[in-house]
Design a binder for these strands. Structure first.
Length: 612
RNA sequence: GCUCACAUAGCUCAGGCGGUAGAGCACUUCCUUGGUAAGGAAGAGGUCAUCGGUUCAAAUCCGAUUGUGAGCACCA
């Protein structure tokens, strides 16, 4: 199971907090067993900010039960039970687990003994509660603060993270060393919720999702469209500088193409079903033809590559497109802009020779670096996503070329090491046609998501018969690098909304300047300012005319407009404006021309703050 | 897809143990012409998600469906 999805942490087990959390998990289980006789236990590990425990319950536990559950836990803690460890030989251990009536513990115990060749198993006892568990725990419940934990949520979770298994009930709780830390954590969590892109997306009129259009098919409102266009402009400029050429391709293609690439039949569930039409051939026959919405742009770009005879002199050939793709994501996965069913991807495919792979990868990573530094994004991590030769899905999931896998993974690993970048390696996260480097960002709720990706494809070009003529006059198959530094508009804008908390830098802001008047008699002056700015392609607008100044400032601020200009008699007389930047109380009055120049500079340099 | 919860005005929410709904913001109009985070008044706006059941009567109770959220699984 990938680390970032499970919430498990590689904590130092000797850590006090780890012991507290782990022990609290046992106390929670004890309380649940009191409340629900006949419940059976799954796993109950410490996690990043607390712990959870999985149960199969005879009757569901819901949020309404939390106060009762917490009360019972506190009562248990008050008793100051000691935690005892017992090591039992295999046979005795199994007898005990059976006596406990814990089928899931039994299954895990058997596996532990088989896989790790264990001859004995460890148990922990506190009061009446007994659990098969490696520990470590606190010595006594007295070591656990009674006011530094809080039950957070209840959710379903498959036993052992496998959807073929029983769905258990997972109870999550926060737990810290003291109440102050817990309170601070909860407060930070609640504050983070304010930045949720779904909430801000609605408040700032960035996107909407309409049931009659369909789940996972967001509608971009004018404000959101500005953000998309600006990002696309930035991407286009960066790509132009790096020698990319733009192409444009249709949203659909014949189904057979995806059989050839190998995407079908294995990914049929993730695609919208085919559109079937009757077409007349040149001989007058009527044949049925199936078209699918493309789930990725690669095959279309590959066809552009193969549309003419390519020479090695043309390589590397870099084809870029913000292309629309459609994926039929599971209903439970769809949400907000983070997982959608129709998306617009900052795609490009680089066709190159084997010798060019390393330098092209370095170029791509440099492009990422430039893009992220412009946006002030620092909080991300890299993941080298490799194949899993032991995956039970095997050849269905990964192209069956073990040597190519190992060598291409080595190429990526070398590049990451050479550039001295921190990364984690993840087995089983590769694309089916090759390994990739994923860029992971944390969401507002602390979950990690892959935002951007660079992939090395050693398989599909061969399947589609792509080739170029080398210096030796022979035909060769090119390698293909897939990359999407700006991800999809959907996912990337979601992250940017949360990153900026909705307060976008001027160049990216839907409304860059709003002009507010002290009273209606200055509307003409204000309108002239708006007109002049708009003539300079600045997204400027006039604020409401009939409210009080306070009200106008409040409105401009809640809309998170980066630059508010206030004009009244003083400004009009001197042809000045008073600038009030978002989040800054001090204002600056300056000649309008000066403002206009500074604003131009701020926008042109894509500055994160105003270039005063 | 799975588990649990939720669904009342554009938004945020109240109410309703069965007798067809209410606030604030936003919107419209009028008054106010105000120098830094909500000036005042009036008006308009809802088959209480949908379908079905129970009932004299359902927005309220029950069921199904759809949608949303959290988490799990998935994520080429």
């Amino acid at each position: 199971m990938p680390l970032e999805h499970s919430g498990e942490i590689d904590a130092d087990a000797s850590d006090d907090l780890y012991r507290i959390r782990h022990s609290l998990a046992h106390v929670l289980a004890q309380a649940v067993l009191e409340m629900r006789e006949g419940a059976t236990l799954g796993f109950g590990p410490p996690i990043q900010d607390g712990f959870y425990y999985d149960f199969v319950l005879p009757k569901p536990i819901t949020e309404a039960d939390f106060p009762d559950l917490e009360r019972r836990m506190r009562r248990i803690l008050k008793k100051g039970q000691r935690f005892y460890q017992e090591e039992l030989p295999k046979a005795e251990a199994f007898a005990r687990i059976d006596e406990m009536g814990e089928p899931y513990k039994r299954e895990y115990a058997e596996e532990l003994c088989e896989k790790n060749g264990l001859e004995s198993l460890s148990f922990y006892r506190n009061g009446p509660f007994l659990d098969m568990c490696e520990g470590p725990h606190v010595d006594t419940a007295k070591d656990i603060p009674r006011d530094a934990f809080k039950i957070r949520s209840v959710a379903g979770a498959y036993w052992r993270g496998d959807s073929r298994n029983t769905m258990m009930t997972r109870i999550y709780a926060w737990a810290f060393e003291d109440k102050a830390t817990l309170d601070a954590h909860i407060q930070a969590y609640e504050l983070a919720q304010e930045r949720d892109h779904k909430k801000l997306g609605r408040e700032l009129d960035i996107f909407t999702i309409d049931n009659e259009i369909g789940r996972g098919l967001p509608l971009w409102l004018p404000n959101g469209t500005v953000i998309r266009d600006e990002l696309e402009k930035l991407a286009t400029e960066l790509e132009f500088a790096d020698g990319y050429q733009r192409v444009a391709t249709p949203h659909i293609a014949k189904q057979d193409l995806f059989y050839r690439t190998g995407h079908l039949p294995y990914y049929a569930d993730d695609m919208y079903p085919p559109i079937e039409v009757l077409e007349e051939t040149e001989h007058g026959d009527v044949v049925k033809e199936a078209y699918v919405l493309k789930p990725m742009n690669c095959p279309h770009h590959h066809k552009i590559f193969s549309s003419s005879l390519r020479s090695y002199r043309e390589l590397p050939l870099r084809l870029a497109e913000y292309g629309h793709v459609y994926r039929f994501e599971d209903s439970g996965a769809v949400g907000g802009l983070l997982r959608v069913r129709g998306m617009c991807m900052n795609d490009a495919h680089i066709y190159c020779t084997e010798e060019q792979i390393a330098s092209e990868f370095r170029n791509v990573i440099a492009l990422y670096d430039r893009a992220y530094s412009i946006l002030g994004l620092k909080d991300y991590s890299l993941r080298l996503s490799c194949w899993d030769p032991e995956d039970p899905q095997g050849k269905n999931k990964y192209v069956d070329e073990p040597e190519a896998w190992e060598s291409s993974q080595a190429v990526l690993r070398d590049i990451l090491n050479e550039l001295d970048l921190d990364y984690v390696e993840a087995k089983g996260e590769a694309a089916f046609y090759g390994p990739k480097i994923d860029v992971q960002f944390p969401t507002v709720t602390g979950r990690e998501e892959s935002v951007s990706t660079v992939q090395l494809d050693f398989a599909i070009p061969k399947r589609l018969d792509l080739k170029y003529v080398g210096p030796d006059g022979e035909e060769h198959v090119p390698y293909c690098i897939h990359r999407a530094p700006f991800s999809t508009h959907e996912r990337f804008v979601a992250f940017l909304i949360e990153h900026f908390g909705g307060a976008f830098p001027t160049w990216l802001a839907p409304v860059q300047v709003r002009v507010l008047t002290v009273s209606e008699q200055f509307d003409v002056y204000a309108q002239r300012i708006v007109n002049e700015l708009r003539a300079d392609f600045v997204r400027a607008e006039l604020g409401s005319t009939s409210d009080t100044v306070s009200k106008k400032i409040r409105e401009g601020t809640t809309r998170k407009i980066p630059n508010l200009l206030i004009v009244g008699e003083r400004e009009m007389e001197a042809n000045e404006v008073t600038l009030r930047r978002y989040g800054i109380r001090e204002q600056t009055t300056m000649p309008f021309e000066t403002f206009k120049e500074k604003l131009r500079e701020t926008i042109d340099t894509r500055a994160l703050s105003f270039a005063l």
